[in-house]
Design a protein around this nucleic acid. Structure first.
Lengths: 221, 221
DNA sequence: AGGCCTCAATACGCATCCGTATGGTTCGCC
DNA sequence: GGCGAACCATACGGATGCGTATTGAGGCCT
């Protein structure tokens, strides 16, 4: 909360002073809506009901604001998202959860696309690289826990990551091409079934005998 | 060619007058490099060695330039790319070719990402939608030719499209996460093998008995 | 030669944004 | 009750970009 016109956040002191975190939050929201270029000081100040005089007290310049917003993004991206799935013991369900999360949590994905679109700025590359590497490593470890060796786990993790990155892109650019309702569940099931094979210990992927359509060893019930 | 400083294009008349197409080409290149926001009139004029006075003779405003650039993009995207794969008779190899093309032709994909990043402009949505729908329809028809019914073909086509869209994204944002050399070929083979199953007429995908690793009915060879 | 068309240079007004300088207001504190 | 820090408003200069107007230089046609 406390994004636009924070008339309610501090105690009822009527005085609604802004903090640097408020600016960073607003900047992140603006980034999700209109990209990095949309994060301008003066429009943001208008949106927050103040003027530039406030901003340049909290931040040295626009660059510092962008850095703060990206740090907030990285923090949310790792703490919130991954920590919320981290308590799932079964690696199969971990991947499934990541997938459902990635397709349901549209806001988060939209934000990634908005940030990554400014990959020419080295500041952005730095953060995108860290976030992506962390996600990827998480997926690789899931596949490793399924019995894949390092090389194959890396390939399958990248495969899966690419797939739901592309789904995000499709959903944002051409939502008409995305199915809805029951058809979407079919689509999701197809991807999950295909991207989580059950032959981790096996070398060749040609003998897909396990159905693995439904949850299997839901041990911690 | 004939992009920066077109001193060679018209007959050797020494007079190097620019045309609207020259501006559109330059705009498209700028878009690929720096996004839509980078397509500004005055920098573009400087790049072309002229001033704004020239631009506003050829175009009514900046919007018209963007439209011309997007039309050029759509034209190239359909004529060049798809028509170059269209003479492949086997649907299996058509998909494979699309895949290899999508991963090799990095420039084209980068351009798509740059354009699609400005999805808030209705002008852009219009073009992106047409291009995406055309690509998708092409893939759906490939899967239909492999024996899939309409619903399953749509799912697999979307799946495949999402995957190489995501690969593009990964390659642009975090190229370190992409394998090179032999590992890349393994990765590619894994995706192709997985995304082109061989049970089009079959209802359930659980009995994957066909290897489908190598080309199979290479009829016209 | 004169006139028209094409293409481009120059100059201007307007808007937006960055960053700085400076002053004003509110609060806590001695 | 004065002091200083936190916070913000106002005003300015510089930069950049859009769009318009005006003028001008060549080519082409008659």
């Amino acid at each position: 909360m406390a994004s636009i016109r924070p008339d309610f956040q501090q105690p009822a002191e009527v005085r609604q002073n802004l903090s640097a975190a408020d600016w960073a939050r607003a900047a992140l929201e603006t980034m999700a809506a209109g990209g990095m270029e949309a994060v301008a000081v003066e429009p943001l100040a208008r949106r927050l009901g103040v003027t530039k005089g406030s901003f340049y007290w909290h931040f040295a310049n626009r660059e510092a604001l962008l850095r703060a917003a990206l740090e907030l993004w990285e923090k949310r991206e790792t703490e919130d998202v991954l920590a919320r799935i981290g308590d799932e013991p079964d690696p199969y369900h971990r991947i499934v959860k990541v997938f459902r999360e990635a397709n349901a949590g549209y806001r988060s994905g939209r934000l990634y696309l908005a940030i990554a679109a400014a990959e020419d700025k080295p500041l952005v590359r730095e953060f995108v690289q860290r976030v992506s590497e962390r996600r990827m490593r998480y997926l690789v470890e899931c596949y490793r826990a399924l019995g894949f060796d390092e090389a194959r786990a890396a390939h399958w993790a990248r495969f899966a990551y690419a797939t739901f990155m592309g789904n995000l892109q499709i959903r944002r650019d051409t939502p008409e091409l995305m199915p809805t309702g029951a058809a979407f569940n079919e689509y999701l099931k197809l991807m999950i079934k295909t991207l989580i094979p059950r032959e981790g210990t096996d070398k060749s992927a040609e003998t897909g005998s396990h159905p693995h359509v439904v949850p299997m060893h839901r041990g911690g019930g």
